[in-house]
Every structure is written in C-alpha cells, then in structure tokens.
Amino acid sequence: MRKISVIGIGAGDPDQLTVQAVEALRRVDVFFLLDKGAEKADLAEARHAILRRYLGDGRSGPGRPRHRLVTLHDPERDRAADGAGYPGAVADWRARRAAGFERAFLDELGEDGTGAFLVWGDPSLYDSTLAVLDEVLARGAVRFDHEVIPGISSVSALAARHRTGLTRVGAPVQITTGRRLAEGWPDGVDDVVVMLDAQQSFLRHLAEDPVIFWGAYVGTADEILVSGRLSEVAGRIEELRAEARARKGWIMDTYLLRREP
C-alpha cells in the first residue's frame, strides 16, 4: 500500500528538524511540494534547501533510486469570505486540494511507494494537510497509510527566541487566530497565542495594554522580534510588518499576548 509521510520541518531554521524527521526524509520516494506562486517562492526554496542539506545528491541509502520532486498547484482560497461564508470557503478550498492530491498519488506514486509533504512548523497546528488527506481517503479512489512526524511549531520557536514561557504557574494558555481575537479576548485566560492574524487584531486590545511577544519569519534569516507593553510597541510592530510585507510580498507572524491576572 502507498504510504504518505507528513513531516513537520520546524519554523524555518533547518537545524530545527528532528532526527525522526531526517530519518523519515530518507525513506521518501516522492516529495509533493505545493506551488503557492512566485510571491512565496522562498518558502519552496526553503524546502529545497532542507532536502539538499539532509539528502545530498538525493539518494536515501545504498542502492536506492534518486527521490523525485512533484510540484502541485495550490488552489486559491476565497480570502474575501468572512463571517458565515468563511467555513464554506475553506471547505471548497480543501475539496479542490483533495482532488489535486488524489490525482498526484494515482499518477506519481507507485502502489508500494512512499510520498511526503513537508509541513512548515508542526502538522497539528493550523495546517490543513491532515484534514485534506482524510478527505482524499474518504473519496475512496486511492488507498494509503499515513504517518505524522511532529515538528517545532512557530509557537514554540517564538517563545524560545523571546526567552519566555508560554504558561505561568497554574495558569492556562490559549492558542487562537487573529479572526477570533478580533471578536474579543478569550474568557478565562490571560495568556493568548495568536496565529494567522492578517488584520493585526492586537490593536483592538490597546486599552488592556498587555505585554506582547511578537515575531515574524521566526527561525529564518529574515526574523524580526519585538516585545514590550502593547501601548509602547504596537506602532513599531505595524511599521515593521508593513515594511516586511512590502519587501517580501508575504508575512508569517505569531505573537503571545500576556496580561496581568
């Protein structure tokens, strides 16, 4: 039976790959890479750099044939959809992704082959790959087994780079999205990690003036870090974020908000 490995590759630093991830790379026959367009070409190059570093000439062992790279078109998601229309837009995007995965598995991966997706950060945290694979299996046209290799998430990397913990004594931390933070501070928690925040929802909480630990492109050569009272650093974060997005064409940032209980 076909096998698919979903390999977490960390937040950006090639040194963050675990030994388990490197061993998994060496078992792969076909790497499936998603083409997100020229704007995010450096994300694809980061994956190529990881493969060059850990697989060298592409041979995963004595006598093994060279691995292949198969690039898949990543369908566009309706990013204008909001409110009640958001779940439907995501479901439609995942369905089109699943159709593309299914065709690729049938056309590019032998029945006893091993394919892999290299997932930024950790596959369990706000990544669609596992849900899409479940949808491929539910379609019933192709059978495969799959495994998940955990990776260092941007959340863990952010806390490490700021030399802070995610939790305080006896207190919880909540991981959420910018979309949800815009609706209000989560009940029952004083420490909130925010991902996928295209609208800079932290600006809605200036009056509460929590401490923010913010990072963009964490773990890469382009890493930017800012921390301090939100009222004092929010403007600086806005400026840095705008400059970085204009320079690179995209931005990937995460932050921890911490208020006094």
Score class of each variant (00 low, 15 high):
M1Q: 13
R2L: 01
R2T: 03
S5P: 00
S5H: 09
V6T: 02
I7V: 13
G10H: 01
G12E: 04
G12T: 05
P14A: 08
V30E: 01
F31D: 07
F32S: 04
F32E: 01
L33E: 06
L34A: 14
D35V: 08
K36H: 14
A38R: 15
A38H: 12
K40I: 06
D42I: 10
D42V: 11
A44R: 15
E45G: 06
H48R: 15
A49T: 10
L51Q: 06
R52G: 09
R52S: 14
Y54T: 06
D57G: 11
S60L: 11
P62M: 09
G63C: 06
R66C: 13
H67K: 07
L69G: 01
L72M: 09
P75E: 02
E76Q: 07
D78Y: 04
D78R: 02
A80K: 12
A81Q: 09
G83F: 03
Y86I: 02
Y86G: 01
P87K: 05
A89E: 08
A91G: 04
A91L: 10
G100I: 07
F101I: 04
A104P: 04
E108W: 00
E108S: 01
G110I: 06
E111W: 08
E111R: 13
G113A: 13
A116R: 05
F117C: 02
W120S: 06
D122S: 12
P123F: 08
S124L: 10
S124W: 08
D134Q: 13
E135W: 00
E135Q: 15
E135K: 09
E135C: 01
V136R: 02
R143T: 12
F144E: 02
H146W: 14
P150Q: 04
P150K: 05
P150F: 07
S153Q: 04
A159N: 12
A159Q: 05
A159T: 06
H162M: 11
R163I: 07
R163W: 07
R163C: 10
R168F: 07
A171Q: 15
A171E: 15
V173S: 10
Q174K: 11
I175P: 03
T176N: 06
T177H: 02
A182R: 14
D190M: 02
V194P: 05
V194I: 14
M195A: 05
D197I: 05
D197C: 08
R204M: 04
L206T: 11
E208S: 13
P210G: 13
I212F: 09
F213R: 10
F213S: 07
W214F: 14
G215K: 06
G215M: 03
A216D: 09
Y217G: 01
G219V: 00
T220I: 03
T220D: 06
T220Q: 09
D222V: 01
I224S: 01
I224P: 01
I224R: 13
V233M: 12
A234T: 11
A234W: 09
I237H: 00
E238F: 03
E239T: 14
E243H: 11
E243M: 10
T254D: 02
Y255A: 03
P261K: 15
